[in-house]
Simulated assay, not measured.
Amino acid sequence: MKTIKTTIAILAIAILAISCSKDDEPTPVVVIPEQNPLAGYLTASGFDQKLTNRVDSGDYEFGYSFTPLVNGTMTAIVAKIPDTHIGMRVTIWDKIAGTVLRTETIDVATAGVEVTKVITALSLIKDKEYFITFNSNDWYDHRKTDGTAVTYPFTVGDIKVTGYSFASGTAQAIPNSPQTTYYAGDVSFKFQK
């Protein structure tokens, strides 16, 4: 009797082991990290060599244009400026059409501290050119130490940065004065493919 019980127990364990296969295991979820192209852009351009704080230095709409190299979504905006600015306007544009795709505000409550605001995902299409701009009278002025111009584009991960430009004033107007000797910021975004 003891042998029969032992045999049945061994058979039950064997059947259970055979019936549990890898197909029953959940497929691991692959999380693709978000990308923020700003640091890579500053490094690739050399604009990370010299930094000057500009506070209360006139109102401008400024930012950089970019093209995603893959389809993806903008999931957040990121800002860091050398002064506080509650309700700072950030605009995402269709660069070619010159139209606003999204307007967000972000609260920079502490000078010099990076702030991230998660936004409703904005689909970005591969090879389409966009602009991200902000309107402020405070910014970081990034330049090369020798003051020379750069040649665009700069590819950073899945984003190609195609230029930097500004427009004077507080109006929500697409920047129309391209510059190649500096970048004024810092406002960027997080991208997930």
Rank of each mutant, 00 (worst) to 15 (best):
D158Y: 15
S165I: 07
V187E: 05
T145Y: 06
T155I: 05
G147D: 02
Q179H: 08
D186W: 14
V161Q: 03
A173E: 07
Y164F: 02
W139G: 00
Y182W: 04
T155S: 00
T155F: 04
K160H: 13
D141R: 07
G147I: 08
A171E: 07
Y182G: 00
D186E: 14
T148N: 11
K190Q: 11
P175N: 05
T148Q: 10
T181M: 02
T148D: 12
G147Y: 04
G163V: 04
P175E: 01
G163Y: 03
T155H: 00
A167M: 03
D186I: 11
D138R: 07
T170N: 07
F191P: 00
K160G: 10
Q179P: 06
T170D: 07
F191G: 03
I159T: 08
S177A: 01
N176I: 13
D141Q: 11
T170S: 09
F166P: 08
T145E: 10
P178D: 02
K144R: 11
P178Y: 05
P153T: 11
F189T: 02
N176T: 09
V161I: 06
V187R: 06
N137V: 15
G147P: 00
V161E: 01
V156R: 11
S177Y: 01
P175I: 07
N176K: 13
D138A: 15
F154Y: 14
G157S: 03
N137D: 14
P175G: 03
Y152T: 01
F154S: 05
A173C: 02
K144V: 07
A173M: 00
A167R: 08
V161C: 00
T155D: 00
P153A: 08
T148G: 13
G169W: 12
Q179R: 09
V156S: 14
K160R: 15
V150M: 10
P175V: 01
Y152N: 05
P178N: 04
T148A: 15
Q179Y: 10
D138N: 15
N176V: 09
S165P: 06
